[in-house]
Simulated scan of single mutants.
Amino acid sequence: MKAEPAVQRRLLDLAQVDAELSRVAHRRRTLPEINEITEAEKQVRAKQDALTTVETTLGDLNREVKRQETEIDQVRAREDRDRKLLQGGTVGAKQLTDLEHELATLERRQAALEDDLLELMERREAVEADVQHARVELDKAQEALSDAARRRDSALADLESTEAKRTAERAVVVKQFPEPLLALYDRVRKHKGIGAALLQSRRCGACRIELDRSAFAHVKEAAADEVVQCEECGAIMVRTAESGL
């Protein structure tokens, strides 16, 4: 394939644009914020699970406290009824003995229930503190996730802006090349990553491998308008005064 040396040199401009587009694509795939978001999402789920666990425990304790308070109220009501019967003076001797025994039992029962209630309330207070701590931790995790997402979106916006500019620039640049040369360039770039590079000091600018004596002799003997490719990577080697020919 043949192409004017000036046209071949302009391939370097195209390669530079494509290199930046490749960097944009690579940067988009490897944004550190992507991993940050993945880890932050794991933390949010873990903190949410932790909060759900302590909230469930708190709910259980609240129900237990309510049940205990209800039972204490029932014991107190039974005690008040028995005392009123005693004070009324209308019961017989046997019933009086039974009431006194029941009151003593109710007093012990109430004391035990109140001790249990106090322990439950102390446990509830501790769990309430755990709930508050878990909510704070969840808020922190959610904020970290939001921050990472904001930074990712900002980085992506910058990349999209750069990509749009370079894509528009490429659309203008490619019009300078004959179709066969452009097709060769694009084919090599698709398979090897770099379509064209400067041959500098006997070294291919794409793969950075120095040409051996035979390959260098072949390039040196080629006509100026001959399109030559690297034997190692296939990239079009653009020859200039820096090529060492």
Rank of each mutant, 00 (worst) to 15 (best):
L138K: 01
V227W: 03
R109E: 15
L145H: 00
A168G: 12
G234S: 04
R63I: 12
L184C: 08
E33F: 02
K94F: 07
G195A: 04
V65T: 03
T30Q: 06
D115I: 13
V131S: 01
S161Q: 12
I236D: 05
G89A: 03
H218L: 14
R63T: 15
G205P: 03
A126V: 10
K47E: 07
I194P: 01
V17D: 12
A112Y: 11
K66H: 15
K94H: 03
A40R: 01
V228A: 05
E242N: 05
L182R: 12
E160K: 10
E69M: 09
S154T: 06
H218G: 12
E169G: 02
L120V: 03
A171V: 04
Q8D: 04
R27K: 12
A15T: 10
Q200D: 15
G89E: 04
E122R: 14
L199R: 04
G92Y: 01
R76G: 09
K47M: 01
V91D: 02
R124A: 10
A111Q: 14
K84R: 15
G92V: 09
L182M: 10
E169A: 08
R9Q: 09
V131K: 02
E20H: 03
A126T: 06
E100C: 08
A144C: 00
E125Y: 09
I194W: 06
D115K: 14
A222N: 08
A149V: 00
H191A: 14
T57W: 07
L85E: 10
P180E: 07
Q68D: 13
Q68Y: 07
A196E: 08
L12E: 06
E69S: 12
C233L: 02
G92S: 06
T52Q: 13
D49T: 14
T53C: 07
N62I: 09
A148T: 00
G244C: 05
L14Y: 02
A183I: 01
V44P: 00
E128I: 08
